[in-house]
């Protein structure tokens, strides 16, 4: 499962999307997200790139505020990236520049969401909530009823089909939300803390369900989690810190001992984020001297430290040509990563 080298760095042109592998479901490429509240800019993601392939279960872990939920929403097209590209295989296009209508039409049968926040309509019953996305898509009623009943049975809520969310426990509501996400049999499920409210037994059942779907339909999963249980079952785990993928892990990750399995990756912009535990051990130095020693890169904390003033100069945006202060992360004019 690899992506051609020419798609690794720089802006990917539309025609180049044709070269992506058949089994690629989704790809994020140099994705930035900046929230603007009044005068304050908050950078949630700073150049995130990765791919998800058919049938893959990918976990995303990281401390609170690291940008996990933002990432899920950017991938699902419910949030627009400030810069970068998000490729969806069903339409073979970058959705970042598409209009809302096209994205909505494309998403309907392609992505299912399980949000961290309760995403059930409180005036609909459990079954009606599960059926909702199929009704919106205009799928036949008989099929809808059959499928939703099956899904509710699968998540252990066959006896609760007529209950409204207020009458369900937090765990039950989450299971209804999962069943809802599965309704249109999407190619990818984006789940944000799907078992956060569930006890261990329920969580395991949900995971088994994910696994079954994954195996039966080849549904890919991207699961944001703090749960060791989920992370351990993922084929790949992305570690997110301060809006950057700070490490990747293959199957069998242990959340309390990430340093054991962590692999650092040089990203599309040739950046290599250092693991937080190493920096902590070194006393959070801000500058390093770099040496290459027999094929190894040796980083030595610099003694000059922060005494050197940061020089702010103007640089030219490579996309729109506007002059921008060098300490900015993105171009304020076009949003391109600088």
């Amino acid at each position: 499962m690899t992506v051609p080298n020419n798609l690794i760095s720089g802006l990917i042109k539309e025609e180049e999307f044709a070269e992506v592998p058949e089994n690629l479901v989704l790809m994020a490429h140099d994705v930035y997200k900046i929230y603007q509240t009044g005068e304050i800019e908050t950078v949630a993601l700073r150049g995130v790139s990765f791919q998800i392939f058919q049938g893959e279960i990918v976990a995303v872990v990281g401390p609170s505020g690291s940008g996990k939920t933002t990432l899920v929403n950017l991938l699902g097209g419910t949030l627009r990236p400030s810069a970068g590209q998000v490729y969806w295989s069903n339409i073979k296009q970058d959705i970042a520049k598409l209009d809302d209508r096209t994205i909505t039409n494309a998403r309907r049968g392609f992505i299912g969401f399980v949000f961290q926040v309760d995403n059930l309509l409180h005036h609909l019953t459990a079954q009606q909530n599960v059926e909702l996305s199929a009704r919106i898509a205009g799928l036949p009623k008989t099929w809808r009823e059959k499928r939703s009943t099956e899904l509710l049975e699968a998540v252990g809520l066959k006896h609760r089909t007529k209950h409204i969310p207020a009458k369900l426990s937090g765990g039950e509501r989450q299971r209804v939300a999962i069943a809802s996400a599965l309704m249109n049999n999407p190619a990818l499920i984006l789940a944000d803390e799907p078992t956060g409210d569930l006890d261990l037994i329920n969580a395991e059942e949900i995971l088994d369900l994910f696994k079954e779907l994954n195996e039966q339909y080849g549904t890919a999963f991207l699961i944001v989690t703090h749960s060791q249980l989920i992370a351990s079952k993922a084929r790949r785990t992305l570690e997110l810190r301060d809006g950057i993928i700070s490490g990747t892990h293959d199957a069998g990750v242990h959340l309390k001992q990430l340093e054991r399995t962590r692999v650092l990756e040089v990203d599309n912009q040739d950046r290599l984020p250092l693991p937080e535990n190493i920096l902590r051990e070194l006393g959070h130095p801000r500058r390093f001297q770099v040496q290459v020693d027999e094929g190894r890169i040796v980083l030595t904390p610099s003694i000059i430290e922060d005494a050197v003033a940061v020089e702010v100069r103007l640089v030219t945006c490579r996309i729109c040509g506007k002059l921008v202060a060098s300490n900015r992360v993105t171009c304020p004019n076009c949003g391109t990563a600088l």
Binding site: R108, F110, I136, A137, N185, Q216
Partner: peptide, 20 residues
Amino acid sequence: MSSESTPPKISPHTSGSRWY
């Protein structure tokens, strides 16, 4: 889950149900 309930193919280019 039975395979019978696999949904009909939803085209990424069609609008949703008008009846909805």
